[in-house]
Simulated scan of single mutants.
Amino acid sequence: MIRLAFRSLVRRPLRQFLLFLLIMVTAALPVFILQTAGGLYGGINRAVSPFPILAGAKGSAYQLVLNTVFLRDRPVGNIPFSEMGILKNRGETRAVYPLGFGDNYRGFRLVGTDRALFGYRPVKNKDPWLSLEEGALFQEEGEAVIGSETARLTGLKVGDTFRSVHGSSPKGRAHNHPFRVTGILRPVGGPYDTAIFIDMKDVWEAHGEREPDKREVTALLVVPKGYREAMHLLSAYQENRDVQMVFPSQSVISLYAMVGQTKHFWEIFLASLLAVSLLITLLVLYWSGLSRMKELALLEALGAGKARIRRFLLAEEGMLLLAGSVCGWLSGYGASLLAAHAAAGAAAITMVTTPDWRGALIIPAVTILGTAAGLLPVLLLERKDVSAYL
Rank of each mutant, 00 (worst) to 15 (best):
130 L>Q: 01
358 R>P: 05
82 S>N: 04
85 G>H: 00
112 G>S: 02
196 I>K: 06
122 P>M: 00
94 R>I: 06
151 A>N: 11
8 S>M: 15
345 G>T: 12
93 T>N: 03
286 Y>L: 14
28 A>V: 02
362 I>G: 07
101 F>L: 14
94 R>C: 00
114 D>H: 08
200 M>S: 03
34 L>R: 03
113 T>F: 04
280 I>M: 13
21 L>M: 07
213 D>K: 04
127 D>G: 01
385 D>W: 00
231 M>H: 05
176 N>Q: 13
103 D>S: 13
216 E>F: 07
132 L>D: 09
211 E>H: 01
382 E>T: 06
283 L>R: 11
95 A>M: 02
159 G>S: 12
390 L>I: 11
73 D>M: 10
302 L>Y: 09
230 A>Y: 02
271 A>L: 15
99 L>G: 05
311 R>A: 09
232 H>F: 06
264 H>S: 14
24 M>G: 04
238 Q>G: 14
289 G>M: 11
19 L>Y: 13
381 L>Q: 05
311 R>K: 12
271 A>C: 13
248 P>I: 05
294 K>E: 11
178 P>M: 12
25 V>D: 01
126 K>S: 05
307 A>V: 04
108 F>K: 10
380 L>F: 06
226 G>T: 07
373 A>F: 14
13 P>T: 04
372 A>M: 13
381 L>K: 05
211 E>Y: 02
330 L>M: 05
40 L>P: 01
354 T>W: 01
301 A>D: 09
183 G>H: 11
269 F>L: 13
311 R>D: 03
321 L>T: 13
369 L>C: 12
51 F>N: 02
84 M>P: 00
303 G>W: 07
179 F>P: 10
26 T>S: 14
171 K>E: 06
298 L>H: 10
83 E>S: 07
88 K>I: 06
389 Y>T: 07
331 S>E: 01
197 F>G: 05
276 V>D: 08
356 D>F: 03
120 Y>F: 06
51 F>R: 02
4 L>C: 04
170 P>T: 00
304 A>T: 09
99 L>Y: 12
205 E>D: 03
190 G>E: 01
55 A>F: 09
270 L>G: 01
227 Y>I: 04
55 A>N: 08
30 P>E: 15
209 E>F: 04
255 L>Y: 08
124 K>C: 00
89 N>W: 02
198 I>Y: 10
178 P>N: 12
28 A>F: 03
240 N>F: 06
342 A>N: 02
119 G>P: 02
64 L>A: 09
319 M>I: 14
194 T>L: 04
209 E>A: 05
375 L>S: 14
37 A>E: 12
30 P>T: 15
254 S>P: 01
162 F>Y: 14
139 Q>H: 12
115 R>N: 11
137 L>I: 09
245 M>I: 08
217 V>Y: 06
138 F>L: 09
